[in-house]
Simulated assay, not measured.
Amino acid sequence: MPAYQDDVRRSRSYSLARLGVDHVDIHRPARLDRSVPIEDTIGAIKDMIDAGYVRFVGLSEVDAQTVRRAHAAHPVVDLQIEYSLLSRAVEAEVLPALRESGIGLTAHGVLGRGLLSGNWVPGRADDPRNHAPRFSAENASHNQTRSGGGVAPGRRWEGVEPSAGDPEEIEAAVPKGTARGDRYPRRSWANLGVGNRRLDGQP
């Protein structure tokens, strides 16, 4: 048994024991090991599905090519990835790949991790967002201004029914490409893509 697959099975056993259940609905690798072919990762999860420990396969923070390769190995039900007015890189290739295969999207960071909700306050030493280029001193002010200037647009529309003209107004206020800075530090997220410049020089 390959070491990687053995690690996956061992992690599954620990997780089920901690949760006190005999199966989980979805197994979604939080971050992929780029040194392991996606087909091997999906194969290990498929073995767990066949054994009754897992019901469905999910993915997290991968590009369109990886989605297609994974889905070819075994049906994938959803992709978890950051998607907001400030993080729209998924629209170019990832969303079309999901639509063509009928794969769902579980979006995180939908309010820009605080930039769109007015909940981010600069200067907090214990804030993990400090490590993200998008929240650096040279980028944060621009991103907060372009996303509403801290007026908390995420709350401003609470309970308001959208009108036909709202999408165009929102697009004009926060156009695609507005945000400055990568979503995550490049050195710790090498070749992530999808909103991060890759270390191999690709966008």
Rank of each mutant, 00 (worst) to 15 (best):
D126F: 07
R187F: 09
D22C: 13
E158K: 08
L95W: 10
G159F: 03
Q202L: 05
S136W: 05
L98R: 15
G58M: 00
L98C: 04
H71A: 09
L59G: 07
Y53Q: 14
V76C: 00
D126M: 11
V90I: 12
R31L: 11
L199K: 03
G159K: 05
W189M: 11
I42M: 08
R99E: 12
D7Q: 14
G195V: 08
R10F: 08
W120Q: 01
K176P: 13
E100R: 08
A179F: 08
E100G: 10
D166I: 10
L16R: 02
A70V: 00
G181Y: 01
L98V: 00
E168C: 09
D40H: 00
P122N: 02
Q202K: 07
H23N: 08
R113P: 07
H27I: 11
P96N: 06
A89T: 00
R18G: 13
G154C: 06
A64F: 01
E169D: 11
R10Y: 08
Y4V: 05
A140L: 06
R99Q: 09
E168G: 11
G165K: 11
A97I: 10
F135Q: 01
S188Y: 12
S117N: 01
E171N: 15
K176S: 14
L192Y: 11
N191T: 09
V160T: 14
N196L: 14
S147N: 02
M48I: 06
D63W: 07
